[in-house]
Amino acid sequence: MPPDPMAEPIMLSALQHYSYCPRQCALIHQEQSFDDNEYTLRGQRAHRRVDSGEISTEDGRQVLRALPLYSDRLGLVGKADVVEFLPNGTPYPVEYKQGKRHKHDHDDIQLAAQALCLEEMIGCVVSEGAIYHHKSKRRRVVHITDRLRQQVETFVDVVRHLLKSGGMPPPADDASLCRACSLHNICQPELVGSRHRIHDLSKHLFEVDESSQ
């Protein structure tokens, strides 16, 4: 189903944030909360050139940085870190990430969403892109598969529903994700989790265990 033309478009980055943690997505894109930690500061330094909007030619490819993207069909807006145009005119999106590859598809979903935007904007199939990891200084090729395309469509729907509902999801049940998140102090996952556990325990406070009688 196409998005409501009067609805606010969703930022491309919201799909990556939701894939990482729905609560993070809500805090950033609904509550407008953001904070920096060592990872985000490193990422900002790593993005200085790609955020410049510079256009160049490298190895026979035209390279556009900070290219604005949109999809009317999906109701998405944002920008690509880098889009290289191959000699035949096919766009090749490249997303820059500060750290190493995540064990999940957070970054791949964001890149696939960029590919879908480029397909709509330019009118040609984008079958491949890459993630450049600053830590290893290597590119990782990402094939824009049918599975990734479907994941993008699904995440667009669930993110739109989340932002429209105004709800706040619980913290991620993954301590490693929480430790690396710049919103840890705002989110306070340990405190929120404790409140939920206390609430559950209070419901059974005065129950009698008949098996012990």
Rank of each mutant, 00 (worst) to 15 (best):
176 S>N: 08
170 P>D: 15
47 H>G: 09
116 L>W: 01
175 A>S: 13
92 Y>Q: 09
158 V>L: 12
77 V>M: 06
163 L>H: 11
29 H>A: 03
107 D>K: 04
11 M>S: 11
69 L>W: 07
85 F>P: 03
43 G>N: 11
170 P>Y: 05
205 L>K: 14
161 H>Y: 08
19 S>M: 08
41 L>C: 10
18 Y>R: 02
100 K>V: 10
81 D>P: 03
151 Q>R: 15
101 R>Q: 14
164 K>I: 08
55 I>R: 15
51 D>Q: 12
134 H>M: 12
211 S>V: 02
200 D>C: 06
207 E>R: 10
134 H>R: 13
190 E>N: 10
89 G>P: 09
36 D>Q: 10
210 E>D: 05
1 M>H: 11
8 E>H: 06
143 H>V: 07
21 C>M: 08
70 Y>D: 01
81 D>G: 04
147 R>N: 09
131 I>A: 04
130 A>M: 02
135 K>C: 02
211 S>I: 04
57 T>Y: 01
85 F>G: 04
161 H>Q: 13
48 R>G: 02
166 G>R: 07
194 S>N: 09
1 M>T: 03
144 I>L: 12
163 L>G: 10
162 L>S: 08
145 T>I: 12
46 A>I: 12
132 Y>E: 05
171 P>N: 10
2 P>F: 07
181 C>L: 03
115 A>C: 04
39 Y>W: 14
191 L>A: 14
174 D>Y: 03
92 Y>D: 10
174 D>W: 02
26 A>E: 09
157 D>S: 06
13 S>A: 15
105 D>V: 11
82 V>G: 01
